[in-house]
Design a protein around this nucleic acid. Sequence first.
DNA 1: ACCTGAACACCGTTCAAGT
DNA 2: ACCTGAACACCGTTCAAGT
Lengths: 238, 238
Amino acid sequence: MTDDDPGRRPLSRDRVLRAAVALADEHGLDAVSMRRLGQGLGVDPMSLYKHVANKDDLLDGMVDLVVGSVEAGDTAVGDAVEGDGGGWKGALRGRVMAARRAMLAHGWAKRVLEAREGASPAVMRHYDAVAGILRAGGFTPDLTHHALHVLGSRLLGFSQELFDDSAALAEGPEVLELHARRMAGQFPHLAEMMLGISHDEATVVGSGCDDQFEFTFAIDLLLDGLERLRDAAPADGH
Amino acid sequence: MTDDDPGRRPLSRDRVLRAAVALADEHGLDAVSMRRLGQGLGVDPMSLYKHVANKDDLLDGMVDLVVGSVEAGDTAVGDAVEGDGGGWKGALRGRVMAARRAMLAHGWAKRVLEAREGASPAVMRHYDAVAGILRAGGFTPDLTHHALHVLGSRLLGFSQELFDDSAALAEGPEVLELHARRMAGQFPHLAEMMLGISHDEATVVGSGCDDQFEFTFAIDLLLDGLERLRDAAPADGH
DNA sequence: ACCTGAACACCGTTCAAGT
DNA sequence: ACCTGAACACCGTTCAAGT
């Protein structure tokens, strides 16, 4: 009977989705079950089906909410890139980095987006905005299309990790080096890479795989490559 | 009591994994449950835990089997690329395309690999082979490392699909065009792209998104970009 | 010591019974 | 007509009881 008795406010799709996002943020995606979600809202699990078609629809709605938040505080501010005066590259980077921030804030969203095959409305709007940036940057519709495919999941701010080395990273560079030496026999080239990294950059923070660096490295390589294609064949994208 | 009574052959990890792969190939990944797998092998579900630590270990073993098959019939044959006499690009394309064939043959593998965070032994061997190709191609360890990250999941032959348009594709180009016109209001740039595509290529097969084309397009753009970086700074990959 | 299957603690969703 | 909760058909895994 208190003021914030959750049973008082009427249920709505938005309230269900926000509760699900909060639940996933706090306890992980696996904690998001119809039963537990209903319990958190002080509602019979079955009542959720009034606002959500099924579990998949719930997950779709959750990512839609997260991706939709990208549009609010997006590229307008600038996200000033070091060496350019805005333009399509800066705008694209801004959009993509905003999406990345949203993804990093909601770690579970990446996993849901990978599992989904159809794009939600907010994702479609995001893609459309990116396409618009490219068109304004002088890309043909055809090359714009290929560009979207090339950028792929990086449009949403994440990339496929090769493998998770965060456990080894957390233990410090000497553990990483030990790890590398141990696998030198089986994976000589990977070991060489790892050892090279831990030698080059003596600072602790830089060793191992720096996700943020690798992400921007990839984006820049892709944008440069696309720009070259645009300039090579301005009339036809193929 | 027949000759091929599955109960006769003793269970082994390999036999369990092969049965799981066959089950996933035939009835989809969701059909792979400990209960159903045990049933298919004529064995108590709990007996599987003698050969497999848990469900995740089972899935790991399954993808390991698939990725491991890539090494058998890999780049040796040549996979001759149009305009070059082999070299690192041809070798890399060959390896990646072999992985792609394996992935296309086992549609569920992509989903499992995306969900996994740690790389299985076969995947590690694959990465190491790719790293070896790059090193032999004159890349520094550092640039080799970044190259692996840039190529990402495409090393294993797949890329993140933006959205699945196979349903619309199957209905033919006129349906695709209708689709595009309907969404022109909300997603003008995406609609323009789709309409441009269906106009350019009148043949039915070519319209919509050609996965194979987009994949090779991306690979070529990435390899060209990496080559340029290699040649720009031969001594230091950064 | 090994194997097995009943049991536990969950799922998403159906559907009939209650209001 | 609407809402609800018991019930269904599954899960992965534990664990104690049987051999």
